[in-house]
Design a protein around this nucleic acid. Structure first.
Length: 515
RNA sequence: CGCGGGAUGGAGCAGCCAGGUAGCUCGUCAGGCUCAUAACCUGAAGGUCGUUAGUUCAAAUCUAACUCCCGCAACCA
């Protein structure tokens, strides 16, 4: 079992043949925020992302380029590493399914399933579309002018008959239903859980887990005709990354079972059904949660390659800034639901919530400190009720945030922080420190001290969401790197520290005429 | 009758489970302040809570029917 203060979180592995898009960025970003939050909260975190590099599509794409598949995947998996870098992601490991450690791991899991009697050799036949890597029912197909059967996606299909190994998924339905029952939070949000349960109740078919028609995959142990197919290979990466099959490795003992698999809603079934079935069959501990988030639309329109409205996360970062993009994606939509990206909404949140609310709170407060307190954090007199009320609101924030992030309610977490930001802005107006300068300088000093400390706390708490900008605020307050985690929240800021001249951290967004 | 979610002021949402003055954010309008990134604060206007019927002293909240939208329906971010 994973240790109490450990936290293992994963993104799906991304299929290298895709171009990184907002869906990938979104999933990984959510994990990054969770990982950063847990680290600041004192957990030992293992944050995994990576790429899925096998399959017929990759084999064909490589052949089309005249290079071997390994070289091809080396190149394209770099796209995902680049995205991770540009998004400032804090992953601890980047796994590739073509690595040796992974091949060993999947083969070991295969062997366990075989030994347990859950894998058998059979065969199947059906209409297969290479482009989609999918089988279709005859009823779904249409005939084109050449007499070929066309899938709903438009891809040509061919009749395929093939020997294949199967996983006895059909035997696991009742056990899975009991598992969901015993672990009500295993699949979140609830609507996805209901979907999965109703799917399982509908009866499960055995799952084809090998192929003989192409070679780019992990070899099936003791049967060189076969390679493993998709989900057994892909899902097992979560085990590989913590040292499986070595169950005595430090990583494994510390981090398995995983605390959270973050996925898009499109792959909830594989994570919610196949994965626990594999693990139960192999007699391995099951992960604690699979969270399926929603999809984005672009200006109200469904995103699709054919419409050409795919959102490039790098373009967003370039236009709006990294932290701003991170903030928007996690604040705009209740996490778990579908959401819409629009330039108007983006600019709106940037200006209103980042520049006006948070940015301006920092700027107006720290400017007054800098000008009126000898460029130092002032020494306060006794706090009055107003001061204590605000400080107390801020102290309440960490437990509130924990509650929200433990159920991946990022939007609520941010909302609760922004409530305190609002309270702080009202406090500034009510106390009007600029007026106290002549009438009661000691009181002014106290108010500015309170504000400095509030800003320190707010910046510390907001770091998981916007690490760079919060880092800048903490730099301005001369908070050392060691003093930026959550256990420092209850220590007050030290009087007498010299400040650097405050500079705006969240610029307003001015819409270009173009775009 | 396949399963599930949703319809609340201009926009996006909360409230519904445990019925009893309809709340939040943005936008709009008016005022205040002047420390600050034309930022901040206060107030106002604006909704017969998808339709119809029912239960009840009382329904956005419960029941029934209906309309519309959206997910899922086997191997696809």
């Amino acid at each position: 079992m994973g240790a109490n203060n450990s936290y293992y979180i994963t993104t799906p592995i991304y299929y290298v043949n895709d171009k990184p898009h907002i869906g990938h960025a979104y999933t990984t970003l959510a994990c990054d925020v969770m990982a950063r939050f847990k680290r600041l909260d004192g957990y030992d975190v293992h944050f995994l992302t990576g790429t899925d590099e096998h399959g017929q599509k990759v084999e064909k794409a490589a052949a089309a380029k005249g290079i071997n598949p390994q070289k091809f995947t080396d190149d394209v998996s770099q796209n995902f590493r680049d995205l991770a870098d540009k998004m400032g992601l804090s992953h601890d490991d980047f796994i590739r399914t073509t690595e040796n450690r992974h091949k060993k791991s999947v083969q070991a899991l295969w062997q366990r399933l075989l030994d347990a009697g859950d894998i058998y050799l059979g065969s199947y036949a059906g209409w297969y579309a290479i482009r989609d890597e999918a089988f279709y029912a005859e009823s779904e197909l249409t005939k084109n002018s050449d007499g070929k059967f066309i899938a709903p996606s438009g891809a040509e299909t061919e009749w395929v008959e093939e020997e294949s190994y199967f996983f006895k998924l059909s035997a696991w339905g009742d056990k899975l239903l009991k598992f969901y029952d015993d672990n009500p939070d295993f699949i979140m949000p609830k609507t996805r859980r209901n979907e999965v349960i109703s799917f399982v109740k509908g009866g499960l078919r055995d799952l084809s887990i090998s192929r003989t028609t192409f070679n780019w995959g992990v070899d099936v142990p003791n049967d060189e005709k076969h390679i493993m197919y998709v989900w057994l290979d892909a899902l097992t990466n979560y085990l590989t990354a913590v040292g499986f099959p070595n169950e005595n490795s430090d990583l494994y003992k510390k981090f398995w079972p995983a605390d959270l698999h973050m996925v898009g809603k499109d792959i909830i079934r594989f994570h919610g059904v196949y994965w626990p079935a594999f693990l139960l069959a192999a007699n391995l501990p099951t992960p604690k949660r699979v969270f399926a988030h929603g999809w984005w639309t672009n200006e109200g329109q469904k995103i699709s390659k054919s419409l050409g409205n795919v959102i490039d996360p790098l373009e967003l970062i370039h236009t709006y800034g990294l932290d701003q993009t991170r903030y928007f994606l996690l604040r705009e939509v209740p996490f778990g639901k579908d959401g819409d990206f629009s330039r108007k909404a983006m600019a709106q949140r940037m200006n209103s919530e980042l520049a006006n609310d948070f940015g301006n709170l920092c700027q107006r407060s720290l400017s007054m400190v800098f000008k009126n307190c000898d460029e130092k954090i002032p020494t306060p007199a006794a706090f009055n009720d107003d001061d204590n009320k605000l400080l107390n609101d801020c102290q309440q924030l960490l437990p509130i945030l924990r509650g929200h992030l433990d159920v991946q309610a990022f939007h609520k977490g941010l909302e609760s922080i922004w409530k305190v930001i609002g309270a702080a802005n009202r406090y500034v107006d009510a106390q009007a420190p600029w007026g106290l300068k002549k009438t009661n300088p000691e009181r002014m000093t106290t108010v500015l001290y309170v504000l400095s400390d509030i800003i320190r706390q707010l910046a510390i708490l907001t770091q998981p969401f916007m690490p760079i900008s919060c880092g800048k605020i903490l730099d301005q307050l001369e908070i050392s790197a060691d003093d930026r985690d959550f256990k420092n929240l209850s220590n007050s800021i030290t009087s007498g520290i010299s400040l650097t001249k405050p500079q705006g951290v969240f610029p307003r967004f001015i819409e270009d005429n173009q775009e």
